[in-house]
Simulated scan of single mutants.
Amino acid sequence: MPVLCRQTLPILAMALVLAACSKPDKPVTATGAGQTTAVQSDQNATAEQVAKEARGDLQCPAKLTTAAPGANVPTDDVIGVRPGLTYEEAANLVMCSNDLLVVTAENGRGFNINTYGQKVRQGFIARFAEPKVFKTGKEIIKEMEAEATARGMNAVREDLKPGQVKWFVGTMGLPGQEHVLSVAREERFASDQTPTVDTVKAALIKKYGDPTRTMSTQSGYRSVFTTLVWAYDPLGRRIPETSPLYDRCTGVADPDQGANLSPDCGIAVAANIIAVRDNHALVDRLQVGVMDQSGGYKMIAATEQGLRQGDQQRQAQEVQKASKDAKAPSL
């Protein structure tokens, strides 16, 4: 699936694009959720040990200080993670949803805004911790050769093992004040816990209501691919089929897929139900995503404005200091 990296931000004109483009760096600690910590050890470690070290002193259930949405607001969360939460609240909620999940700052995808030298956290991913196994040089080379062969033969490479989950949460804001603008989660069901398509649809409708639209497509080796969308305008009103926004205000369910943001759209929820290849009545994996398009659009514009004002203030302070302390030139 083609995606774009480092998109530009047209503040008053075009829609914004947030794309998934690179691999993560280091795991993030639970406390503060913005500090990185490498799991360092010269010994083998189980996935549980790796996760425990990376998650730090995480306390569950996660505590939230951000106000809950109003009663008339559309349902806009994925297991409690929703637009508007702080970076730290979202990271802790995600990790509290599974003992093996580790959050990693995502520095390789996002919006190409002028940060004026500041570090803006534009999101994080979360995946299951993997066992730490030390290998010999020969073993490493053998694995690299096998991977190269698989790529050359276009072999299918599964991103998730049965029973695993991954997340991407997009954030934006001034450094240290970043808030969630999008969230997407994918779960691949264990072979002995595979739900039916009807069961998953019923659960989605119970949580988010009747979808704005439902589509079924054929998607390569993953076979039947059913998408449900719930779309609202910036005032929280459901978008009808007769509206010109009907085809424009769509959500993104895949954690690896880029997201379009438009000031004309509000909350957008999307779910992809991906069937088992040899039994289309059963679900192999489920992807669910939520974004606040108009809210995210405003958030990005406000962040860029705040960064610009901060840089102007810095320059003014430097000029003021220089006017007092600098020596006159020798002429």
Rank of each mutant, 00 (worst) to 15 (best):
E241D: 10
A150S: 08
T212S: 08
D278G: 07
A146H: 09
A190L: 12
T242M: 14
G296P: 04
A67M: 07
G289Y: 01
A54W: 01
Q257H: 15
V17L: 12
R82W: 14
T66L: 06
R151E: 08
K201N: 08
A67K: 14
D278F: 07
A328P: 07
E318M: 14
P74Y: 13
A281Q: 15
P74G: 15
R238H: 14
V180H: 01
D76Q: 11
R277P: 02
A38H: 03
V165K: 00
T217F: 09
D57K: 06
E318S: 09
T242I: 14
C265V: 07
Q315F: 04
D192F: 04
V288C: 04
A71I: 08
Q164K: 13
Q312P: 08
G173V: 00
S243H: 04
T171W: 06
T226Y: 03
L18W: 05
P2F: 05
P10C: 06
Q43P: 02
Q320G: 06
A326V: 15
F225E: 11
S216A: 13
G163R: 07
L282H: 04
Y297I: 05
K63T: 15
A54H: 08
E89L: 12
E304N: 13
G34A: 08
M14H: 15
R127L: 13
E139I: 05
R185E: 03
A150R: 11
T46D: 05
T227R: 03
P83C: 10
R109S: 13
R127I: 10
R285I: 00
R82Y: 13
Y232W: 09
D77E: 15
R6S: 11
L100K: 10
K298R: 13
G123H: 06
N107K: 15
G108S: 04
R237V: 14
A126D: 05
G176W: 10
E143H: 03
Y87D: 11
Y208V: 03
Q287L: 15
S182T: 06
